[in-house]
Design a protein around this nucleic acid. Structure first.
Lengths: 367, 367
DNA sequence: TTGTAGGCGTTATCAG
DNA sequence: CTGATAACGCCTACAA
């Protein structure tokens, strides 16, 4: 006869032979506590949160009170495990600190928030290694989608992205021929438009100026667009790269120094700067070099930073729409989730959120 | 004889009368799959990830191969549920899009990343309502801590913050007498230092200029510091507020317009701008108004934005350390987690990450 | 509209 | 060093 497990000695409460220590709990109140207090089953409480219409008015009222009294909040962790849906989206950014990328994040966050998806963020400072690490880390959250902000991944990253079997959206730039969905605009086109803007005004010596950081591959893409437009027009491609040390403003100033030292007759009539900060640095430096812009040299930027319009001369630039791109990326993800609950992985599409040329004084070619 | 509760149908697998449809799964491979393939138990696989030293060299090698072959990634969701530790930190930011706050986020992210904590981000655009919503949402993730970036919460939010029974860190600013941990610097002090900087140079008519947005309560705190320093010196407090419509740069320009129209003898000798953008707007606008800075009016900013050093005159400003503040906030959280595994909730402490005065040309009082 | 049974993938506990 | 067992808190499937 097996021993009866219960109550060998009523006097000593610590007598129980093998009581396992209780394990650490995540929640103070659980759905069961709430259910018990309201006199319903726990699934009804679950429905109260996930499908309120399926719960009667009366029960709903009672639950509202109990929940308010206990301060119960459903556990996201348990819920996601049980439902088999992570409802999380991982986004890998190259540079969280710039306002442009910050706006991109804001757009995504707003888009996902409304749909109950939690955005997980990683910052890589343009490192491919860190991107790989981030993607791997996100995989463990069973993301509903992954968003990346570059198109040149390490082979391992690319393999990982396919392996997670989840929609992948490349954002900010778009380039043809990628195996993933893309939301953004073609950076080459930015270079093309700015070059043409100057070419159309009759300029022939047009320079592209950028920093040497291999990291900012988008700037390189823009420079390539510039180059192709120049070649198309039969003009000489003239890309200058600044020294390493400088920050963007400093780099812009350096470009002007160099320009000033060139003989007037052969020097660039216009400079397409890789971004607004460089262009601003150039404009701010010009007066002390005895250069008057745009008479002595027309300039343009990229980004339409708030300061662009306040410079003298006001800066001609291309205005991207980072917030809209982020929002659109979120929408694309939501669509993909709705379309393919499982099975066929929807062919990759290109979503262009265009970039606008904003013409101000700085780009006027003066003869 | 009662029926044995175990093993419902050992012999015939297809005999079962009611086979339930399989439920949706989160993972493609589980820890059990890996364990089976490697010929060990699943707990050993768990140890391989969480305590590798407790697994023999041989087994470790075998597991490495199997994991590489399957592409298995441990489920964060399941792991956190089982371990009873969310290992998540929720951070509520007022304005994700500014570089300063973005740097704050970067600091936190870097700090938490190293410790395996996942940062969850919310953006409120200075809304107290959205802050409350975000805190509530984060509660469901069983955060190890919550980070907020203001000290004036709604009563409900404040109640929520206490109810989660988790360390709460208020960051960016610090003010005495709060019930939560704080990491940052006293914004009043910024106003005090800048006012004194001008007072020490003999200026008597010193103005503080800000936008009317009630939202930026930090700027208000800085203005109060300015005011107290002025009163202390027996000088008149002169706080001007711009019109609604303008952005920061525009607002700064507006302040200069107003200044120009005042009679020279009574107008401000120095202006403490609420931030660098406003000050930059002012400096950029001045020449076209026939004002020469700092001769006609000395100015200062706040934030030490990259452009501050490149303006003419270069802008005197206060330099905060957002990245360091974020990093420190992360450290504080980690310490609190280590200190109080449970029980006594460590008395709130103040951690000041100081803000530095950076003197440049714009603040020179010329007589 | 409400309830029962059981599993989601992992780790804590206890035992070899 | 390795393993069996039982939660963790919720939700899907199915039944009433």
């Amino acid at each position: 006869m097996p021993v009866p497990p219960k109550k060998p000695l009523p006097a000593s409460p610590a007598e129980e032979p093998r009581v396992r220590a209780p394990r650490r709990k995540l929640a103070t109140h659980t759905i069961h506590d709430v259910a018990a207090l309201a006199g319903v089953s726990s699934i009804t409480v679950s429905r109260y949160f996930n499908a309120p219409d399926k719960v009667s008015q009366a029960v709903r009222e009672r639950l509202r009170e109990v929940i308010a009294a206990t301060g119960y909040v459903p556990s996201q962790v348990a819920g996601r495990l049980a439902s088999g849906q992570g409802r999380v989206v991982g986004a890998v950014m190259q540079n969280t600190a710039s306002t442009t990328f910050a706006d991109l994040v804001r757009g995504m966050n707003d888009g996902f928030d409304a749909a109950g998806l939690q955005l997980l963020l990683a910052n890589t400072d343009y490192s491919q290694q860190l991107e790989e690490r981030a993607v791997r880390a996100f995989a463990g959250w069973h993301p509903s989608a992954l968003i990346v902000t570059r198109d040149d991944h390490t082979p391992d990253t690319e393999a990982l992205l396919r392996a997670v079997r989840v929609p992948v959206v490349e954002t900010w730039g778009v380039v043809p021929g990628r195996p993933f969905h893309q939301v953004g605009f073609p950076h080459e086109q930015v270079g093309v438009e700015l070059a043409r803007h100057f070419i159309a005004q009759g300029a022939r010596r047009i320079r592209f100026a950028m920093r040497p950081v291999a990291q900012d591959f988008r700037a390189q893409q823009r420079s390539m667009g510039y180059a192709s437009a120049m070649r198309e027009a039969g003009l000489k491609v003239d890309i200058v790269t600044t020294t390493e040390a400088a920050d963007e403003f400093e780099a812009g100033a350096e470009v002007m120094h160099r320009l000033q030292q060139e003989p007037k007759r052969t020097r660039a009539q216009a400079i397409v700067f890789a971004n607004d900060s460089m262009a601003a640095g150039a404009i701010l430096q010009a007066p002390s070099l005895g250069l008057e812009l745009p008479r002595d040299c027309a300039v343009s930027g990229f980004g339409d930073a708030p300061i662009a319009a306040r410079l003298h001369p006001a800066l001609t630039t291309m205005r991207p729409a980072p917030y809209e791109i982020g929002m659109k990326a979120a929408r694309v993800v939501l669509e993909l989730m709705a379309q393919a609950p499982q099975g066929k992985p929807a062919p990759p599409q290109l979503h262009v959120v265009p970039c606008r040329l904003v013409v101000r004084d700085s780009s006027r070619i003066v003869r």
